[in-house]
Amino acid sequence: MGVSDTEAVTTGEGDATSWEAVEDLPPSAKLVAKVLEYEDTLTQSQLAEETLLPPRTVRYALSRLEEVGAVDSRFSFSDARKRLYTLSI
């Protein structure tokens, strides 16, 4: 029983540590992270629609989230001009 308790604490701490990096970011970055948590994968324009934030603000939020390693991005297969963003924490 002690081993499973330790594992639960370790995984819990990992999640908390990941989100701690986001806690120091601006509110817009936190909002974008939360939307990605619920929606899984979105483009920058879809994030702007979902968050009701201006595209420039979403772009800044995504760059800050990428700096702390909270977001992964990849090119869209359907449109190589667009990038798809997913939460990595």
Rank of each mutant, 00 (worst) to 15 (best):
D24F: 11
D15C: 09
D40P: 06
V68Q: 08
D40A: 06
P54M: 09
A29Y: 04
L47S: 08
E13H: 11
L53A: 06
T86S: 11
P26G: 07
V32S: 09
T43A: 06
V68N: 05
D15Q: 15
G69N: 07
T57F: 00
T41Y: 08
W19R: 11
Y60M: 12
D72R: 07
E66D: 13
Y60N: 15
E13P: 00
S73G: 10
S76W: 00
Q46R: 05
L47E: 06
T43R: 07
G12Y: 07
E23S: 14
Y60T: 12
S73M: 03
V71I: 15
A33E: 02
A70T: 08
T51K: 03
W19E: 08
W19K: 13
A21N: 13
E23D: 15
K34A: 06
T51C: 13
K82Q: 13
T10Q: 07
R64V: 03
E23A: 15
P27F: 06
A80S: 13
V68S: 08
V9W: 03
R59E: 15
T86A: 10
V68W: 04
A8M: 01
P55T: 14
L53T: 02
T86C: 07
E13L: 14
S45C: 00
D72Q: 11
G2Q: 11
T17M: 12
L31T: 06
E67Y: 04
T6M: 07
T57V: 14
L84Q: 11
K34S: 04
E66S: 14
F77H: 14
T86D: 09
E7T: 02
V68T: 05
T41I: 12
S78W: 12
E50G: 03
L87Q: 11
V71Y: 02
E67Q: 11
D72P: 00
E7Q: 06
L87F: 05
P54H: 15
L25P: 01
L53Q: 11
G12A: 02
L53S: 05
E20A: 15
A48M: 08
L36W: 06
F75D: 15
P55Y: 13
Q44F: 02
G14Q: 10
S18F: 02
E7Y: 02
E49T: 05
R83D: 03
T11D: 06
Q46P: 00
L47F: 01
Q44E: 12
P27I: 08
I89T: 12
D15P: 00
W19P: 01
A70F: 03
T43V: 06
F77R: 14
A21T: 08
R74S: 14
E66W: 00
L47C: 06
L87K: 09
Y85V: 04
R64Q: 12
A8N: 03
R64P: 00
S28R: 07
R59V: 12
E67M: 08
L87R: 12
Y38K: 13
Y85R: 07
R83G: 01
A29C: 05
T51D: 11
V3P: 01
T17Y: 09
K82M: 08
Y60K: 14
L42P: 00
Q46D: 10
L42F: 03
L62A: 13
R83V: 01
D24Y: 03
E23L: 13
A70S: 11
A16E: 07
Y60H: 13
Y60Q: 12
S28L: 00
L87V: 11
E20K: 11
L65I: 05
E66M: 14
W19G: 00
Q44Y: 01
D40T: 07
